[in-house]
Design a protein around this nucleic acid. Structure first.
Lengths: 364, 364
DNA sequence: ATTAGCACTCTAAAAAGGGGGTTGACAAAA
DNA sequence: TTTTGTCAACCCCCTTTTTAGAGTGCTAAT
């Protein structure tokens, strides 16, 4: 009678679990003991493996959809896989280079970096890619300018230090002279650059109420601007989701219902936004960057068959957004995690690049 | 033997065709003679109807997927239905009001009118909604301004007369002083407002080469701007598609393949863009507004099971864009056409509103 | 021109039949 | 104590068969 060392037994168990996850992700069919015996544990019989599988089932890592017909990894198994079994895949230098090239091309070629990043994520992962920018309220302002459009209308253009550009029309009852606009613009950019939008509102408000000399002539306009700045549309978050179609490509009809569910969640922007926002806050608090939410780990029940792989994005000391992919629970986690991580670092670098060349006083 | 007047015979034929289209759209099942006899032509026997159906099939309006099992309208039938049989549905005042309210709310609440319009289209039609803006090159400019960002970088902001806002970063080797920027900005807005981007390029170029006095100090910056203005990213078209998920809601698994195909087309933005652009040019040339492309009428073979209902959008005398929905061939054309038409008019009004308050010289 | 009737066709859904792979159990072997 | 061989039982999935139903074309009668 052999006595098996506990470590050896555990290692074998993990080997089986790892292989089952990978196998299931690949084939999308329940995995049976025979298959394991043939595939990865050739020195052990299927009966032994059955015993181990029974244990794993007991512990909640596997379940059988039907009485006889192989077993399927549970969410707990995926979690264990992601946490302990998936050796972090480093991207091949060649692959990195390719991505980098494509990233540069996309971001330079077209104006909206964030949309392009989501598309790239989608393309390379085969799932849907998203980029979420947090409340602009909390981001540092780089500039806020006003362009005259019509006697009673102007266009406010806000640039944050992460390079995000927002613009919104401002309508006023009376005529605004461009001269006034310039005074206001200069004042604002002198006083509030580097502060967050929320802070800027306060500063502006204080100056207004203390009857600041420079602001005297433009008090009416400033008031209106202040009002518009408080509106949710101005300071709100933004969400880009691209490549939902890709999901259809890589799924069979079995996933039809899951997909429907996902679409429902994703297309209800507010819902998905607030979900991401919560996740963002959570990660930020724990000072973590990457996150994988597997199936039922998502609070939203509609996502119980989907997983989200995401990473945060920081500019300076602020977490300004989040990006990642959302796809079927049975995805190639190792590959996708490496991908999200890498593209995240590229985006972050891009955003920080804006920041790297701060305006000097004497430039103004 | 009764002799049937030809008009009566034709009317009956049309009645059958109309009913078949409606019935098929509703049930998605082949329509049989019995069904018609029971449903809409109670005073005639099924045999008679069979004869008429045979004729319609001969003429290419119907076809049988299998030898026995009812008939299905062909694209030709849909076309005939849309052109002659679908009495243009007027939207109920109540419905109009509701849409208008929602439209106002959406457009005011958030910054991007075009995205919101696509979403509204998608929501109300149950299919995917799109808004396409033609080449900005061909649109009249309202303003072009430059905001200083960093010593060697600025943000160009372009506003067209339809209210479209484009912005792109301009990088330069040397430092740009805000003073220079202002000179350039003033010059540009004095000289090129009201012209198209293409014209503006020419004007600026001419001034540059004739050594215009005012431009002397900013020639370097102007050259760079000119270069950037020619880049495709600046003058290109733009496409928003929203609500692809809605399509899944309203389709069964039978349409799975069609949907996949559609997604492929729509997600290849360039492809769909050029398709819409061609359609736009065609409509503009024929001085038409609305268009319905049914199934195989689309040049793209992947769209053979889909229809596009679209309408153009004009600002002043220029056709600046297009909006509509794309969905399964078997859609409620009457309802959708009315919808697209109405939302189109709202969007057009919104865009023209920008235009309605032109800048007076003395305002500047 | 229209209709009733009939034979025929074809599909979609239900029923029936294997085959293959899996499981649990147990006893024997290591 | 752990592993293994073996076997009956299970259940899914695939294929085939059957059945019911609906629709058609044709023809003769009206």
């Amino acid at each position: 009678m052999r006595i098996l060392k506990p470590e050896v037994a555990k290692a074998r168990k993990e080997k089986i679990l790892r292989w089952m996850v990978q196998q299931y992700v690949e084939t999308r069919r329940p995995v049976g003991s025979q298959m394991i015996a043939d595939g990865v544990l050739k020195d052990v019989s299927s009966a032994t493996i059955r015993n181990i599988m029974a244990e794993l089932e007991q512990e909640g890592y596997l379940y059988q959809p039907h009485t006889s017909g192989g077993r399927i990894p549970t969410d707990k198994a995926y979690r264990y896989y992601v946490d302990y079994l998936a050796n972090v895949q480093k991207m091949a230098a060649k692959e990195r280079e390719q991505i980098e090239k494509q990233y540069d091309a996309r971001v330079n070629e077209v104006n909206n970096m964030l949309v392009q990043t989501s598309r790239l994520l989608a393309m390379l992962s085969g799932a849907a890619g998203f980029v979420y920018t947090a409340q602009v309220n909390d981001q540092r302002i780089q500039r806020l300018d006003f362009l005259p459009l019509a006697p009673g209308a102007m266009l406010a253009v806000l640039v944050t230090q992460s390079g995000t550009v927002r613009h919104w029309p401002v309508h006023m009852a009376q005529v605004i002279s461009p001269a006034k606009l310039q005074v206001l613009s200069r004042f604002i950019n002198d006083e509030i650059a580097g502060h967050t939008l929320a802070q800027a509102r306060q500063i502006l408000w204080q100056y207004l109420h203390s009857g600041h000399r420079e602001l005297a002539g433009v008090a009416d306009v400033a008031t209106q601007v202040l009002k518009d700045m408080s509106a949710p549309k101005t300071g709100g978050d933004e969400l880009y989701v691209e490549g939902i179609g890709r999901l259809l490509e890589n799924t069979t009809q079995e996933d039809y219902e899951d997909l429907k569910q996902m679409m429902r969640v994703v297309e209800e922007r507010e819902r998905f936004s607030s979900l991401l926002n919560a996740k963002l806050a959570e990660l930020d608090k724990a000072d973590k960057r990457m996150n994988v939410s597997i199936g039922s780990e998502n609070k939203t029940p509609e996502l119980k068959n989907l997983s989200i792989v995401s990473t945060t994005c920081r500019v300076g000391d602020k977490t300004v957004g989040m990006l990642g992919i959302i796809g079927p629970k049975h995805m190639e986690y190792t590959r996708v995690m490496a991908l999200v991580n890498y593209i995240g670092s590229l985006l972050e670098a891009s955003m920080n690049h804006w920041n790297a060349l701060p305006l000097e006083d004497n430039d103004l």
